[in-house]
């Protein structure tokens, strides 16, 4: 029996210093260490069946990242909780939930992100074709939506030069 599990996690310094693939590597190792009943692909190079949401840029923190993983069977709450202890400083499991077999993958249902802009904004006249800007209580927020299946990096589209970002919200397809 195959089971699908969705992990919601947060990423903060110093984990923000490792890239997306390496972060996936950490999760894979953490799940092995926690003894999760992982399902593997067939063949000479058995791989964990894992899919993630759009990659988070290096140096950017987030309180809501997602990944889906396939398991061979249901596991105990203890085993599931063990993953928290098997990650690295800055990576924190927020929630683990079972999803239905035919539920769409995480990448399909994410529609965009909200980022908070950190640092001084040097130029605020951007070509906002793929993103929108909003100010609240002196803070600047950027919303980046999915276009043609891709979600752009805010620094590439917003024209906010010299800024860094903090992802604060993940938006889902209704």
């Amino acid at each position: 029996m195959t089971l699908r599990v969705r992990i919601k996690y947060s990423k903060r310094y110093p984990a923000t210093l490792i890239g997306h693939l390496d972060t996936m590597g950490v999760f894979q190792r953490g799940m092995r260490m926690a003894g999760w009943p992982l399902e593997f692909t067939r063949g000479f190079n058995p791989r964990i069946k894992l899919s993630s949401g759009p990659p988070l840029s290096l140096g950017v923190s987030s309180n809501a990242e997602y990944l889906d993983v396939a398991l061979r069977r249901r596991m105990s709450a203890y085993r599931s909780g063990l993953l928290k202890e098997k990650l690295i400083e800055g990576l924190e499991v927020v929630d683990i939930s079972e999803i239905e077999k035919d539920d769409p993958g995480i990448n399909t249902i994410i529609s965009g992100f909200d980022y908070q802009v950190i640092g001084e904004v040097l130029e605020k006249n951007p070509p906002f074709s793929k993103c929108s800007l909003r100010e609240k209580d002196g803070e600047i927020f950027v919303r980046v939506m999915k276009v043609d299946g891709n979600i752009a990096n805010p620094s590439k589209v917003s024209g906010l030069k010299g800024c860094s970002y903090k992802k604060i919200k993940t938006l889902f397809v209704d």
């Binding site: 923000t16 210093l17 490792i18 390496d22 140096g59 400083e89």
Partner: peptide, 20 residues
């Protein structure tokens, strides 16, 4: 302020420590 400075370098994970 390492949190601010380190992301500017190539592969900053090699200076961060805090690995497994």
């Amino acid at each position: 302020d390492w949190e601010k400075i380190l992301p500017k370098f190539q592969l900053p994970g090699r200076y961060s420590g805090g690995e497994y």
